[in-house]
Amino acid sequence: MEQKKLKDQAWYREPMMWLVVGGPLLVVCASITTYMIATSRPDPVLERDAAAEAQRVGKSLTPEQRESLEPALKVRNHVASPRVPADK
């Protein structure tokens, strides 16, 4: 009697099937949504030099601002040319 009851149940009414299929289906939907968001709103291209950008806007950087940008400029230059500088 119990065997017949299991066979009569439709495949989409089985909870284990939704656990197995639901995860990958959710990932596919999320990746399509992420792709659509990424292609509809591309990132703007930024100026490479903050001082040149400030001059373009009409502002000048204070010495404190220039010092705060120095580590970022060193890292950017290191990424552009991966040679290790001979700093002490």
Rank of each mutant, 00 (worst) to 15 (best):
53 E>D: 13
38 A>F: 11
84 V>G: 02
85 P>I: 00
47 E>R: 08
71 P>W: 01
40 S>M: 09
22 G>N: 01
52 A>N: 11
44 P>H: 01
64 E>F: 12
69 L>Y: 13
70 E>A: 15
29 C>L: 15
66 R>N: 08
82 P>K: 05
61 L>A: 00
61 L>V: 00
73 L>Y: 06
84 V>N: 03
61 L>C: 00
8 D>C: 11
48 R>S: 14
78 H>Y: 10
1 M>W: 08
28 V>F: 10
22 G>A: 01
16 M>A: 12
52 A>G: 10
19 L>C: 05
52 A>R: 12
12 Y>T: 02
38 A>P: 04
56 R>A: 14
45 V>H: 06
66 R>I: 15
72 A>S: 13
50 A>T: 12
37 I>R: 12
23 G>R: 02
60 S>F: 11
56 R>D: 09
85 P>M: 00
66 R>V: 14
1 M>K: 07
83 R>E: 14
2 E>Q: 14
28 V>S: 03
13 R>A: 10
1 M>E: 11
10 A>H: 12
66 R>T: 14
52 A>S: 09
84 V>K: 04
47 E>K: 07
5 K>W: 08
38 A>R: 05
49 D>K: 07
9 Q>R: 15
87 D>F: 14
39 T>Y: 04
76 R>E: 05
63 P>S: 06
16 M>E: 04
71 P>L: 03
69 L>A: 15
35 Y>P: 02
8 D>M: 13
84 V>Y: 04
84 V>A: 09
7 K>C: 06
35 Y>G: 07
11 W>R: 10
2 E>L: 14
29 C>Y: 06
86 A>Q: 06
24 P>V: 01
82 P>Y: 02
74 K>A: 12
46 L>E: 13
19 L>I: 06
23 G>H: 02
13 R>E: 14
16 M>P: 00
74 K>F: 10
26 L>M: 07
12 Y>E: 01
83 R>P: 03
40 S>C: 03
2 E>R: 14
66 R>K: 15
7 K>H: 06
24 P>K: 00
23 G>C: 04
69 L>P: 04
7 K>W: 09
86 A>C: 06
67 E>W: 10
24 P>A: 00
19 L>P: 01
85 P>R: 00
75 V>E: 13
15 P>N: 02
85 P>Q: 00
46 L>C: 10
18 W>F: 02
